[in-house]
Structure formats: C-alpha cells, structure tokens
Design a protein around this nucleic acid. Structure first.
Lengths: 227, 227
DNA sequence: GATTGTGAAAGCGTTCACAGCC
DNA sequence: GGCTGTGAACGCTTTCACAATC
C-alpha cells in the first residue's frame, strides 16, 4: 500500500536520494543509528534541513537519540516508490545511450534496462551491457510487455522531441531527457532533464567571475544549484 | 574585458544556457529578432521570467520591438564567459568517461577535452574520441600545461573524493561530478553534480504518487525541479 | 543531556501588473 | 499599440530557535 500522505516539497524530494545513498553506505558499514547532524555532514547540508526533510516522511526519529538507519532507509525507499523495480527503456544507442545501458548503476539501484532502441538500422542488433539494441518500432511492445513507466531520451537534439512523442505514445509517463532540447509533453507526463553542456556553461560563469574580479562565488560541497 | 556587473541569481544563471541554445537555433534559422514571449514558449517558461532573467544582463531589448537575436547571443555568451574555450580534463575512463570524451557536444560548445586520465594502468594508452587515456599522474601537467580550470569526475563513487582532491591539487577550480558521492572541496572551488540514479529516483517518486492515488504531479515541459 | 519535530522568521525566486519607451 | 524592464506581491525554501520527548 503506497503512502497517501501529504505531498513533499520538490526541493526535499530531490534530496531524499542523497540521504538514501548515505544511509545505505552507513548500513553497509554496520552503522545502526545516526543523527540529523551526522547525516547533514555527509550530505553537505545543514542539520535543520535534514530534520525538516525527514519530517515530511513522518516522525521516524527518536528525540534525544537520532534515527535508526535501517528503518529510515525503509521509509525513504517507500516514499520514493523504490519498493519495486522500475524498468526503463533507452531511446538512442549512440555514445551516451550505450554508456547508460552499460553503466551498472542503473540496474543496481532498481532501474533495470528493459530495452534500448534506435532508429538507425546499422545500430540494431549490437549488444550493449547485455541488452540488444532493437528497432524503435519495437518501443510499444517493450513498454507494454514490461510495464515500463520511465523512458530515457539519449538522442541528438533534433531527434529528441520525436523520441519523446514515441515514448509517450507507447505509454511512458516519466522521461529523463539527456538531449539538449526542451521537450513538450502532454499533461500527466513528468520530464526531468540532464544537460551536460549547460552544466559546463554554468561552471564557466562562476569561473569567469572568479577570474575577472576577485569575487566570491558559490563554493564548497555539492552543487551551487538543482538542481 | 569581462563584465564587472552585479551578480546574477543562481536560478537565472542556470537558465541562460537554455536561452542561449534556443537563440542559437533561431540564428541558424535566420531569425533576427524575437520577444520574451517567443523565447518563453521555446524554453518552456513564462515570459516574465525570461524578461527578468535577461534584465540581469543589462537592458538589451527594445521596448515595443523585442530582442535582437545575434546581439542577445553575444551578451549571454559574454556573461557566461563563453568568449573563449574552456578545456576540461576528465578523470575516469570507464563507461561514462569514455562516452563523455567521445561525445562531440563538449568540444562543439567550447569545452574541448584537454585530456582523460585513469588510475587503472590497463586503460592507459587507449584512444577515445581522438584523445589518448593517460595516467592520473599526468594530471598536474595536463592542467597546468593547458590551463584547465574545469575537471570532470567520472569515476566510481569510492574513488570520487580522491579524484576531486587530485584535481584541486592540480589547480582545477570547478568540478562537474558524475559520481554518486558528495565531494568536499576547499573554499574557492565550485562543484556541480549530475546524479543519474537520483534523477530516476525522483521520477520514481512522482510516478508512484500518480499510480497510488490519482493525484496531480509536476508535469508539462522541462524538469519538475532543477536540476 | 541529547536530539527530534516544528512554528515562526528570513531569504530567494517567481509572477503580476504597469510605467516607460519605442 | 506593443513589448520591455522592474517594483511590489506572492509563494516556496531555508534557517532559526525552542518546546517536546526520550
């Protein structure tokens, strides 16, 4: 039974995976209990933020004591919907698509690659990370056959909208977009994007400021932004 | 002469690369003039936001008319520090490091790969995207020899902090981190992270909400968050 | 005594709405 | 008349600070 609790602010949702990763590391090192202070240190944020974030999940800490690592892992996983696997389908078997398919980190973390497709006939048939590249025409059968809810767009920019359209038509309702293009999708479909060139350009901005004037700039752990 | 203007809010800085890309496409299609409304549509944001963002650069529009595409491209590029190339060095020649090195999108957009290094001797010497993989011991000479300011961490999580430390010691002051780990760096060094597993987990959260209750969820173009 | 959970305050970012300018 | 540039209002996010609880 999935939670029907109050919705969690977006900024908090984006930090839960970080806490989850840290807690999982703690678990692997046989740490059984932790505090907002300890988590904050490892996550590169402050303790009040950790407590506020975790409070949206419910009251799973113990005052005067802290948080039970395993219990908190369980609760975060439940909230994020990680109690079952989410197979993903990758569109685009170029450099990036291949790297993503071959990258173990996906399957390991509950996102097995259900398939990788490309429109280019010359790429079809090759095997990447144990998954055979198939024709984009097989997208609907992959999505429906394996109940794929999440699609990954790893095409060039000019093919990205078409890829997204096909994913949506096939029944996908979440898209992770690596192409440098703004996707338009119908209501009810969530898109997140990862834009490598943008990230470098943002770094360039701060780098430049530092180099021209000698001025202060967001610094220290983790991103200056979210995202 | 780089701008010594007021600092631009982080959220705005993060959108400038998107506007820049759209304007460049407009330029390529011989569009000479645009409006905040037109840009907003293509960027998937609203017009007021576009105007506010652009106003931080200065007053480069014309009331009653709009923005000159080429002039705005020039101003954004200048503000982002894109008037010259920023060579980058990649640490980690695994799946992802190779894909990044081979991905044309970097060099094309002013971030040529100055080098790719790995600690694993068996990887050294192979050539990826025209760049030979070198020993991590050569990091200082690559960074200093080619004035590299930006480093990319594409190692496994457990090697990421060590990679960051080496980059910082070599003189890099901006890091783009692909490893699922929080990096700690000295003041004066900027870090941005791209965390693939986190992005999928965030999608999972909204997917799950949609599937359990039938409830509304951030939707439509672009990210529900940042990032 | 320690640490959580949370109202209230402060700080940012977004949107509104319109004056200013072409 | 049309579109920018921007102060003001609004809403979201972070941080503070402390009462509640173990």
């Amino acid at each position: 039974m999935a939670s029907t609790r109050r919705r969690i602010p977006e900024a908090s949702v984006a930090r839960l995976p970080v806490y989850l990763r840290i807690l999982t590391e703690q678990h692997d090192q046989h740490v059984t209990s932790t505090s907002s202070e300890g988590l904050a240190e490892l996550a590169g944020v402050n303790a009040a933020k950790v407590r506020k974030d975790l409070s949206y999940l419910g009251s799973y800490g113990t005052r005067g004591v802290g948080y039970d690592v395993d219990y908190l892992i369980y609760q975060i996983r439940r909230e994020l919907g990680l109690t079952h696997d989410w197979p993903v389908v990758i569109v685009g078997a170029g450099n990036l698509g291949q790297a993503l398919a071959g990258y173990g980190g996906f399957g390991d973390r509950g996102f097995p690659v259900a398939g990788i497709v490309d429109i280019d006939v010359s790429k079809i048939g090759s095997v990447i990370g144990g998954v055979r590249v198939r024709s984009i025409d097989e997208l609907p059968s992959i999505v429906q056959g394996q109940s794929v809810a999440i699609g990954v767009v790893a095409t060039p920019a000019d093919a990205a909208q078409e890829a997204a359209d096909r994913l949506v038509r096939a029944g996908v309702t979440s898209i992770l977009n690596f192409a440098p293009a703004v996707l338009s999708v119908p209501p009810g479909v969530t898109v997140r994007k990862v834009d490598l060139a943008s990230e470098l350009q943002i770094l360039s901005y701060y780098e430049q400021r530092r180099q021209s004037s000698l001025q202060s700039v967001p610094t220290g752990s983790t991103r200056g932004a979210s995202a």
